[in-house]
Amino acid sequence: MSSQKPIVELAGVGKTFRGPEGEIVALDGIDISIKKGDIFGVIGMSGAGKSTLVRCINLLERPTQGKVFFDGQELTAMTAPKLRQARRSISMIFQQFNLLMQKTCLKNVCFPMEIAGVKPSEAKKRAMELLNIVGLPDKANAYPAQLSGGQKQRVAIARALASDPQVLLCDEATSALDPTTTRSILALIKDINRRLGITAVIITHEMAVIEEICTHVAILDEGKAVEIGMVEEIFSNPKTEAARKLVFPDGLPVSHLKSERVVRIVFNGGTSYEPLIASLAIDCGVKVNILGADTKNVGGKAFGNMLIGLPNDPNEAQKALNYLKSKKDITAEEVTDYNE
């Protein structure tokens, strides 16, 4: 799906807000290039600057530094009417849906076409098609207040598609929805991406959203893009503290726990009811330190891995290691590059 041409490019984008307590740097030197057809995720803790970043793409927020390009044209250099024209190719959906509450769903979907000066009869026809695509043809004459959150977001997506955009910006689009609805909205976005070739930019604080649909991800921390790359690469090997926090949200900041020798245990589906660490302590009389764990219990079997720190006494450490290696259904190996 991905071609090599960037559709959205941020070059050294920075945004500083002037508040009553001095300047607040929301974004700092962001360089992001999003290729046509990608589903590009931007993740970060709240306050990391995600919403500001996505608003800098369509210039709802004007960056105080750097340039923004869309399809090769510099948005930051455009006049207001030109920019409004360009914005029709960059649609946006929001956490709070932002539908016109006094208009029917059909009128809501017609709205971008009304702005663009499409004939009302044509707009109506196209709007019906779009409501069909998002699976709500029967809600054409309903008002947004009569819909559930998921349905509202579907209408918002139909509205976003009405201007035949090249890019769909999703600002925490699923954050107000329950997990099941979230999944169905994500599936819809993925489907739109695949069928219509629309590039999607997904802003979220939920790792699950990125895992589910994104091809690329940028990790934002305190206004800086600390890691950018393919989702698998970043997830399998998070290099920065911020990335690690997001990938292992419950894990302790591992680097704070120092240990001489560290062993990684991989559970290959042994019974999870057998208390490994406890039996290690009882059988060998060795106390180990759990540095981090990411395990899942699937049907009574343990999968995942755990990092443990061995005691500093070499004899005890060897004893523990031998014990672990003797266990079946787990693989134990010493991690040498842990205490770098």
Partner: peptide, 15 residues
Amino acid sequence: TDKGVIEAAQSMGAS
């Protein structure tokens, strides 16, 4: 008027 709705209209390129 909900600020978000105005923002949505701006994002659509409304004058």
